[in-house]
Amino acid sequence: MADVLANPPKTSPSEPGSRHADAVGAHPHGGHEEGPVRRDFLKLAAGSFTAVGVGVMAWPFIHSMNPSQDVLALASTDVELGPIAEGQAVTVMWRGKPVFVRRRTAQEIQEARAVPLGELRDPATDQSRVKPGKDQWLIVLGVCTHLGCVPLGQKPTDARGDYGGWFCPCHGSHYDTAGRIRRGPAPLNLAIPDYSFTSDTRIRVG
């Protein structure tokens, strides 16, 4: 090895072995004319197989970070509506997020329905945001559609914003009594989760 160290190989870095070897392979005295073609095909095939293999094996790693089966199967949440008085609201957890359940007063429903659709950033009628015949009950995800903060307005002492619904303190989005965006940076109305009435005084979210 001392010899090798004393005389560093003169192969320059710009002349990698592959080219070197190809040149030999293409040598007319190699004795097999189809050599280079066959080797190129083989290399291509082996290379593509390797690429496919690595790609396929990457999937389990990526997919393992997607929601797991137990997370996907997470229980739905039942909410008892009986104790909620008119004008009051409760917050329940569903999939790690707050769900606002609000029992609206007649006046609040009136206000929400009086707004012309043209004035809304994300037009939706009040009727489309509640279950038929359950106009009092507004159930929305308590997550501001701007950047995910939880808006104020659930507690009687909270600021409810200029439209009597919710107000997001992070960046000043105002929602009305139908949970629709009226002012501020948020682009969309508060989302409505999947839910159904399991009885007159009970809902199941999810």
């Binding site: 999937w59 389990p60 790693f61 997919h63 393992s64 997607n66 797991s68 089966q69 137990d70 997370v71």
Partner: peptide
Amino acid sequence: RDVNYGWLL
């Protein structure tokens, strides 16, 4: 059981 491909990893 529940993590996607968890058994494999």
